[in-house]
Simulated assay, not measured.
Amino acid sequence: MSSPSDGPWSPVQWARNGAVRLAFDRWAERTGGEPLLLVTGLGVNRRWFPDGLCRTLAAHGFAIARYDQRDGGESTRLPPSAARGPVSALFGKRGEAYTAEDMADDAAAVMDALGWPSAHLLGVSLGGAVAQRVALRHPGRVRTLTSMAAVPGDAAGLRTLRYIRLRTLAKFARLSFPDTPAGNIEAGVAVSRLLASPSRPFDEPAVRENAERNTDGGVQDQQAQGRQIGAQWHGGRIDAITRPALVLHGEDDPLIKPRAGKATASRIPGSRLVLLPGVGHELPRFAWERVATEIRSLADTAG
């Protein structure tokens, strides 16, 4: 899902949740439409949402904003914790840095800064779990929920492992590159390769060009990833979500098994599952129109 910004985004703005500052911006090419907040995944910055997808969503009548989650991008980085990485966060001590409720409240804080009383949510990967939790914790702020490539938002610890391809996670944990701009580029290419659908040729030149334009060090900051994935949820079960919901999942996802999407959709009342052929743990160009059309249909049904 590595496709950095080359479109017209507003200058970076800031929201605050307590001591945490959250960087966000708006799609400025087309500003009218229904508010849609993009919630990004583990470790990566907001620029991993492809501009082409954002342009497509805008054409379907959405006003788009995206933000960096705490411990990602330009948002506040928290102090080191006992979890040394995402794998140890799953198996070891968790949650001493902050909670999953804090991360859900971050999304609400961004909506406050945007002046949005409510918004549609699109969360991908970890962002999908966060978006589910926002719908539980702040239902009045959520018009519709779209969760993509995510585990159920109330899964925790070892219960999460049934949904994760451990071989891919182990490869992810073993990635090691210099903490330099060049090293971040190589890490971005390697992560994109791991997350891409194995049924399609991997376009390394295009991926490398994208990585050179978005040298995101978060892809190899395992301490930050450990804090994000270690944030424990103490709230309700996703069976209690009352907002109109859509669950998207790539049929070829090499990291999160499609059974995770099926489990999520089976438990959120009234939700709909759409499996995307040829899609991995990514947002490839050929899927943009389908994703935008499905989210538009959900919004129209809710309206």
Rank of each mutant, 00 (worst) to 15 (best):
V39L: 14
G123W: 07
S125F: 03
T242W: 00
D71C: 07
N17A: 15
R133K: 08
R167M: 09
G236M: 15
S2F: 05
G95S: 05
A109Q: 08
W9R: 10
L121Y: 04
P79I: 12
R137E: 00
L145M: 05
V189C: 12
R165Y: 13
P86G: 06
H60W: 06
P269G: 15
L166S: 05
R243M: 09
D112V: 03
G218D: 09
R47W: 13
T144S: 10
N210W: 11
H138S: 03
A82Q: 07
V247D: 09
T180I: 08
S10V: 02
S75C: 10
L114I: 04
A109V: 09
R55H: 04
I238Q: 04
A82Y: 12
W233S: 01
P8K: 12
R290K: 14
R174S: 12
A28H: 08
P244C: 09
L275Y: 03
T144K: 08
H60A: 14
N17F: 10
V20S: 06
R94S: 15
G278V: 03
Y67F: 13
V279A: 09
L194T: 10
R213T: 15
E74T: 05
G218N: 05
I229F: 01
S88W: 00
E251M: 13
L38H: 04
A206L: 11
P254R: 15
A59P: 02
A28Y: 02
G92P: 14
R165H: 15
L42C: 03
V207T: 15
R84H: 06
L37N: 03
L78C: 14
A263R: 13
T40W: 03
F49H: 11
G123K: 11
M111F: 07
K257T: 00
L175Q: 07
Q223M: 06
P258E: 02
V39R: 07
R26N: 04
G33C: 06
Y98H: 15
G278W: 00
E29W: 05
A231H: 07
Y98I: 10
L283D: 15
A287L: 07
P152E: 12
I185K: 02
A240R: 15
S125W: 01
L298A: 13
R46N: 06
Y98K: 14
V110C: 00
R193D: 04
R259N: 02
L175S: 12
G303S: 07
A190D: 11
W27N: 07
R165D: 12
R285A: 14
H249Q: 15
V189D: 09
S75M: 09
R213E: 14
E251L: 10
L161M: 10
G250V: 10
D252G: 00
E209W: 06
V151L: 08
G41Q: 15
G235I: 03
A156T: 14
Q69K: 10
S197E: 01
D106M: 04
P205S: 13
G128Y: 08
L122K: 02
T264S: 11
D6Q: 03
L298F: 07
W288A: 02
T56C: 14
I185A: 00
R21P: 06
D51R: 02
V219H: 13
G85A: 02
D51E: 05
E96L: 07
A170C: 05
E282C: 03
G217H: 04
H249W: 10
D239N: 04
L53Q: 00
L166A: 11
A170Q: 06
G230E: 08
T146A: 02
